[in-house]
């Protein structure tokens, strides 16, 4: 019973971990370059949750010095994640721009088909 409560009490972390692993899995398992970027975005988004959920205090007030304001939540994580969101958007847009160029150059965005034409990129060749 205790264990169940323990697990339920930290549900925010479970969601974070699920998103993190799911995103990473999509990056590894999918051969479609756009789907890989979607996975990468989910992976990055899970980190936003990792920062934000400990930044909230139940019943906390805004961080104002004055009467009636006590036990405020640290606003720093929110600011950090605003920056991280911008970084995530930039990465995703650059990634998509590259996929567009790859599609123009190769006529496909499936990794398997590209690796067939370019043997340098075959996974086994490196090792």
């Amino acid at each position: 019973m205790n264990l169940v409560q323990e697990i339920l009490a930290h549900y925010n972390h479970w969601i974070t971990i699920f998103l993190m692993v799911a995103g990473l899995y999509v990056v590894v398992a999918r051969g479609n370059m756009v789907k890989k970027l979607v996975g990468l975005s989910i992976f990055q988004t899970s980190v936003y949750l990792l920062y934000l959920s400990p930044g909230k205090i139940l019943g906390g007030t805004p961080p104002i010095i004055g009467e009636g304001y006590s036990g405020y939540a640290n606003p720093l994580p929110h600011v950090l994640i605003l920056t991280a969101i911008v970084v995530g958007v930039a990465t995703l847009s650059l990634g998509l721009a590259l996929v567009v160029r790859i599609n123009e150059a190769y006529g496909t965005i499936e990794e398997d088909e590209i690796f067939e034409t370019e043997e340098q990129f075959q996974p086994g060749e490196d090792e």
Binding site: V27, Q44, G95
Partner: peptide
């Protein structure tokens, strides 16, 4: 070389995972 695009894409995926 058009392979530069693939190299950049692969680096983007790996590099972003590293930074994350």
């Amino acid at each position: 070389d058009r392979r530069a695009l693939i190299a950049a894409y692969q680096y983007l995926i790996m590099g972003t995972i590293g930074a994350t």
